[in-house]
Design a protein around this nucleic acid. Structure first.
Length: 639
RNA sequence: GCCAGCAUAGCUCAGUUGGCCAGAGCAGCUGAUUUGUAAUCAGCGGGUCGGGGGUUCGAAUCCCUCUGCUGGCUCCA
């Protein structure tokens, strides 16, 4: 007998060799029906795999992330089975589960797969799922595995096998399809009830752009049809909120082929949003001792050679601008930090001056590959809410904590209540990607790790995600549709101060090197606004929205009173527009609703006489009549 | 940058296998209407069919090329 420990601490005895599924059945059949996989001693296993020794056991269902990903991984195999049945000779790369569903990279030879083929593949998958085939795990020797794929002629699997040690190779089979796979899998294909293929695209074999491009087919599956329907509805909603669509509809920003790819142009309303964001952040930063600076959009090439940016990005960047005579070279500013370092360096500093916090809404230009550009989220010219803090090593932690505090405060104000962070450290396998001494890196990484421990912040750690000059703390938020986005960042940097030979005179009358913190809570205004647009669906927070009200006169006769109302509200710092067209009130309301202006102030005979406004809230309807002062008070109560 | 797809009026889209002056709705303009909580009526203007080249008696439609956009890959200081 073996002892099985459950997550609640209960221990029960089972016969050696019992599987998680057997154990689930002993508890309840309802539970067993829902089991997709099991976590045995912390490792995800097939629910049907025999457990031979004392273990901890957690049964995984659709509610668990690992249950879902097992389900989707098995669905990838099911899709592969369908593809092999429909297109014999198909070769298979890899087919993992991803955040939403799964994909499989396949080589179809000369055949081009398009979305029109999806229906056929989905139908085949459903047909195969209904055959109720078990996923069978089998350990196999390397030689036998190689023989199998040589026979099949699948060079991709053979290449994968090269890296696998003999004795750790497993095959999984369901129905007619056998795949090299570590597993685990769900017990049986019958659990897959709803199937939707999503997209098809190219993907380099093993992510290497010099190697063959395979066809990647994305899909998603669910145990219930209803869940698929809900998922598709969510995608529909996301499409409606797409910032590119809303940006055009609400006249926030535009792009122009003539101006150039990836160069956003802000229209008056979008610019109002930007201005309001900037002034909000400026006020917060002033409270925290930041000083604002302005630096040029270009700088001599040598500046970036000094900073190390040129060496790292020079080739893949906008190329230097040359002056007519002197042969001087200037670069478009890709970062603000070198300029700020020069500001620091322009005069000697005492330890008593530190920390020095230099802030700038700095517009920078980076050459992004054309295929990467995407609305406002990935552009070639953008404005960072940048600041650099120069401090002594002793001050580092407090400064870092203050930046953390500021960032969290800002995110909450923006309506993102779930903020998490990623600690981005060096890739231990590629030290040559980074500049600066190992010692400085260790100090910087430790500073971030220590500081985040002191605050209430959920973090994950990723290796290889650091910037080339220092480790980062990257902030992530979840939007209204549950999607995660990466926003701003805080970076600790010992390297640039060294490269720019920055110093301060300490209490010991000796020169010391300051530490530098790079930080941008929003990251860039462009990217942040793209996320905010989708998060709010264009219904921005009142304090941020470009047009806070629209005055809608019932007829031309009340246009004068409309102006009176507008003036009164301007005195309260509430701004909006008047719709003085000779249209019926229904029309004016409809047009204002579509523009998502939060308040409609309808005025006619009654209101003009009583000096009131009839207030309608966007998306909600009439909320009654009130005086202008009452409305202003109501408005302010909502800020 | 690579692979695949797309590009018709300000916007959303029609335009059959190449064949009369390229269409609709919304938006715009003009006029009428002076209106009470999600679209008043009528009239008018607007397109070198993304740019260039080619095939053809004839191209929005077929071919080449450039530009831009979309999805995916790679990249992201």
């Amino acid at each position: 007998m073996i002892n099985i420990t459950f997550p609640d601490g209960n221990v029960r005895q089972y016969e050696a060799g019992a599987s998680a599924m057997d154990i689930a059945k002993s508890i309840s059949h309802g539970l067993a029906k829902n089991v997709l996989a099991a976590r045995v001693n912390g490792e995800v296993w097939d629910s049907t795999r025999p457990i031979e020794a004392d273990s901890t056991l957690e049964l995984l269902t659709w509610k668990d992330d690992d249950g879902k990903s097992t389900f989707w991984h098995s669905s990838a195999h099911l899709m592969a089975e369908a593809l092999e049945a429909l297109y014999p000779g198909t070769k298979f790369g890899i087919g993992p589960a991803i955040e939403n569903g799964f994909y499989y990279d396949i080589d179809l030879g000369d055949r081009v797969l398009s979305t029109e083929d999806f229906k056929k593949i989905e139908d085949k998958m459903l047909e195969l799922a209904r055959q109720k085939n078990d996923f069978e795990r089998r350990e196999i020797s390397k030689a036998d595995a190689i023989a199998y794929f040589e026979e099949k002629g699948d060079e991709y699997k053979l290449e994968l096998l090269e890296d696998l040690p003999d004795g750790e190779i497993t095959f999984y089979q369901q129905g007619a399809f056998t795949d090299l796979c570590r597993g685990p899998h769900i017990p049986n294909t019958e659990k897959i009830k709803a199937i939707k293929l999503m997209k098809v695209g190219g993907a380099y074999w093993r992510g290497d752009e010099n190697r063959k491009q395979l066809t990647r087919v994305y899909g998603i599956t669910f145990p219930k049809q209803k869940e698929l329907t809900e998922y598709l509805a969510l995608l529909e909603e996301a499409k409606k909120r797409d910032h590119r669509k809303l940006g055009a509809e609400l006249e926030l920003f535009m792009f122009s082929e003539r101006v150039g790819q990836g160069l956003p142009i802000w229209l008056p309303k979008g610019n109002a949003l930007r201005e309001r964001l900037m002034s909000f952040l400026k006020t917060e930063q002033e409270k925290r001792g930041y000083k604002t600076v302005s630096t040029p959009h270009i700088g001599r090439k040598n500046l970036y050679v000094t900073s190390g940016h040129y060496e790292k990005y020079g080739e893949d960047s906008f190329q230097p601008i040359n002056t007519p005579r002197e042969g001087e070279e200037f670069l478009l500013k890709p970062m603000n930090c070198p300029h700020h370092c020069e500001i620091y360096a322009h005069k000697p500093h005492s330890y008593k001056d530190l920390p020095i916090r230099l802030a700038e809404f700095g517009t920078v230009y980076r050459y992004e590959q054309s295929g990467e550009l995407h609305g406002l989220s990935r552009v070639r010219g953008f404005t960072q809410d940048d600041a650099h803090i120069y401090c002594t090593p002793d001050q580092l932690k407090d400064e870092f904590l203050d930046v953390l505090d500021l960032t969290k405060m800002i995110m909450n104000k923006m309506g993102f209540d779930k903020v998490t962070a990623q600690i981005s450290l060096r890739d231990p396998e590629n030290p040559e990607k980074y500049i600066g001494s190992v010692e400085n890196w260790e100090k910087a990484e430790q500073a971030i790790i220590d500081a985040t421990k002191e605050v209430d912040l959920e973090t994950i750690t990723e290796y290889g995600e650091a910037a080339f000059y220092g480790p980062k703390l990257d902030f992530m938020v979840k939007d209204a549709l549950g999607r995660s986005w990466q926003l701003g960042t805080i970076q600790v940097d010992y390297n640039l101060p060294e490269r720019f030979e920055l110093e301060y005179i300490g209490a010991d009358n000796q020169a010391h090197r300051p530490v530098m913190i790079h930080r941008a809570p929003f990251g860039s205004l462009e990217r942040f606004l793209s996320i905010l647009i989708e998060h709010t669906g264009g219904k921005f927070p009142l304090w941020l929205t470009p047009e806070q009200f629209a005055i809608l006169p019932i007829s031309d006769r009340f246009n004068d009173y409309a102006v009176e109302v507008e003036r009164a509200l301007t005195k309260h710092d509430i701004t909006g527009v008047i719709d003085s067209r000779s249209e019926k009130i229904g029309r004016k309301i409809r047009d204002t609703e579509v523009k998502k202006i939060p308040f409609m102030l309808i005025i006619g005979e009654k209101e003009a006489e009583a000096k009131t406004v009839s207030v309608r809230r966007q998306g909600e309807g009439d909320i009654g009549s009130m005086t202008i002062e009452e409305f202003a008070a109501h408005f302010k109560s909502l800020l």
